[in-house]
Nucleic acid binder design. Structure first.
Lengths: 161, 161
DNA sequence: GAAATCTAGTTGCGTAACGCAACCGGATTT
DNA sequence: AAATCCGGTTGCGTTACGCAACTAGATTTC
């Protein structure tokens, strides 16, 4: 039965994971954010088998995260370009990188540094902030059902508050 | 040979994905952020097979994201508590949820809404901001090697700029 | 105080996914 | 004309996943 799918889960995190597909897919998006567009460049950069890469790119195209653009004369040369939806994953990637910079590599051992193209200054750490600017931790949050909440979601939130 | 591991990749995103483990693991962390701590509660909430849950929790404990705490008298009752390292994944979860709110469910169909416990106001959208507050897109970023960059990383960044 | 239930798993088994290597056909370069 | 590049596909073996059944000690119920 393969991996369980989250597509039917009434949960934003699950839906996002389902759309992205799997671990490889997020690495593919990461490469794309850093400028890679060609099939063979993804394959080389990630060291991924080509059949796996094919299925992942197909999945990402099907979910509107990439657009497959014919850049050759007769359909033999393609670019996989991030859509707006794909570019919108940037905060996810940045958040993951910041987490590992702090908790895996440790300060002073970051493999890469991201700077603002225009000012040359480092991009400040992303944080979950309240509307007045206070940083928020999980305990500062209150989760309530939204307009698209399923009965399950409502039940779960009720039980958990 | 099973899934390829990213543990040896000199890349923050890959390291973070490796530490978290897989799709299930991130859902487990999500549940934990929302207050779940017990083995059976995770199992029920996620609908995950118990053997899978066992391996994921073990992995997360091994990577310091959860701590397994004996809350019974004789080692028969446990809580899996998020560590600081685990709580620090909050921005990742929030970023994923915000992405799917906008690009999967669409505005007005969000399954949950997250409010600030103290003020009751909605938590503002996370964004990648420059130090002067401008929102940044992938094209506004310049990636340079950090102090922990491997030779591979340096080569890759040189080629790509 | 015996039986049922709860908790936190483990074991066995079948299927789906992954990884590798080989192959392929059209286009481009040498 | 031959070699190489590009973007894959195919076949095969191994691994991981998912389900269901089982377990053993602790707790609750009758």
């Amino acid at each position: 039965m393969g991996r369980k799918r989250f597509g039917d889960i009434n949960c934003g995190v699950g839906q996002a994971l389902e759309a992205v597909g799997d671990w490889w897919s997020l690495m593919i998006v990461r490469d794309a954010v850093f400028g890679i567009r060609r099939f063979s460049d993804f394959a080389q950069s990630l060291g991924v088998a080509k059949n796996i890469l094919t299925t992942r790119l197909d999945h990402l195209v099907a979910h509107g995260i990439f657009e497959k653009v014919d850049v050759g004369s007769m359909g033999t040369r393609f670019e996989y370009q991030l859509t707006d939806k794909g570019e919108a994953l940037l905060p996810v990637l940045i958040a993951l990188r910041e987490w590992s910079d702090e908790w895996v590599f440790g300060r002073g051992h970051e493999p890469i540094i991201i700077r603002d193209q225009h000012t040359g200054r480092r991009v400040p750490k992303m944080r979950v902030l309240a509307s007045d600017g206070r940083p928020l931790s999980p305990r500062d949050l209150r989760v309530v059902p939204g307009p698209g909440a399923s009965e399950d979601t409502i039940q779960r939130l009720r039980k958990n508050s």
